[in-house]
Design a protein around this nucleic acid. Structure first.
Lengths: 217, 217
DNA sequence: AACTGTGAATATTTTCACAGCA
DNA sequence: TGCTGTGAAAATATTCACAGTT
């Protein structure tokens, strides 16, 4: 299969696809293309998909349920090995074939099962403490769905998925398009915003006026 | 509040934060810092948070449930205006205060409610058709949770959230660290991988051997 | 003829470092 | 003095375009 075909399937340009693959090695054949099976194997190995990773999900609310039941993990080498929650009404419940265990048992669960990755699906205020306990127990990667920044020591990686932010990015572009439709190529900062700003009055008028003058100059 | 404080709260460097804010205008005060309330207002306006966006969620499985119940949307100006599913067992059910309506009504729901953003939480095979119908009905932004690339016409934006990919990125870095721990600064492509490759035998040995030779040379 | 792999060119992002202002 | 805003520099990422290979 050619880089052109692979690229369009992936939604990127062919040059980018070839450049990216070249970082793994020369696994294509000039004049012919790529052997898909071989490529899959090489990419899988490079990405660490040849080994199995154990995951604990902390916080079995709506999102935790969805994650526990999400089929996409298993097929990519992730095993949800434990579910943990703080709420006594949830503890003991069976979700996706696993029994939800108490937050108290988190440390022991992680160490004894050899869990490497923790998924934080708790409310924001609880997230940092959960994260600290995960790290102490030996987790080296954290996927954070809580709406906050998590601080971790060196050697531990955090990734954050913020669902509201994803929608905001869509809304931002939509707004831009709508603005352009109305007024051709209007500058980013329209000058006659003073009325709106004063109406909203987020800070004392004095400061506001000064800052506007600065921005206009 | 100084750029240093804001940056550490956001988990980025202070130079980056100042540079980013400078694209909105000069809303800070030299020698002092930023007025947080004023900054919040300016950022909100620029991001389009001052207007309300209507969202339809298509596919009310585990993830759809979680999204419908997710509190973070409302506070950032998104209203989940409709829930749609194809499964007769789900249609009519009440989720997060809304009645799940039939897929047949999708087009009318979107146009009559003036929905701007569609969230696709369906299985992969259904996603493209749903997406097409959303776009035809007037949606201009799509948030895709299905594990596939969606094709849309110009003027429509798609963002994809792939939960398994997020875990893979964590696993990738974890694997790298583990490899480095074992062997200091081992090159990215160890040479003695032949045995493993042949054992896995993803392609006929001839091709495999040739490609390996090429990669080594 | 067809298609990869990759240097060189271009574009974008991030960081530095400091002039200028409160 | 302390901090912003921003050019200039450095680092990354993307695209071009073509030599090299089957």
């Amino acid at each position: 299969m050619s880089s052109e075909e692979l690229a369009s399937a992936a939604g990127v340009g062919s040059a980018k696809l070839r450049k990216d693959l070249s970082h793994l090695g020369s696994y294509g054949t000039r004049g012919v293309g790529y052997e898909v099976q071989y490529l899959i194997y090489q990419i899988s190995r490079e990405l660490g998909l040849t080994q199995d990773w154990k995951v604990v999900i902390v916080g079995i609310g709506n999102l935790g349920h969805a994650l526990a039941n999400y089929g996409g993990f298993t097929s990519r080498g992730f095993t949800v090995a434990a579910l943990v929650d703080a709420d006594p009404r949830v503890i003991g419940e069976t979700v996706a074939g696993l029994t939800v265990s108490s937050l108290d048992s988190l440390d022991e669960t992680v160490s004894s099962l050899g869990i490497q990755i923790g998924v934080v699906a708790t409310p924001g205020p609880a997230a940092q403490e959960i994260c600290d306990r995960l790290v102490t127990a030996g987790v080296t990667g954290v996927l954070n769905f809580a709406p906050c920044v998590l601080t971790v020591p060196d050697g531990v990686m955090v990734r954050r998925v913020d669902l509201a932010t994803e929608l905001q990015i869509l809304a931002f572009h939509e707004q831009r398009r709508a603005a352009n439709r109305l007024a051709g190529e209007m500058p980013t900062e329209p000058q006659d915003l003073n009325a709106a700003l004063n109406a909203a009055r987020p800070v004392p008028p004095a400061t506001l006026t000064k800052s506007r003058a600065e921005a206009a100059g």
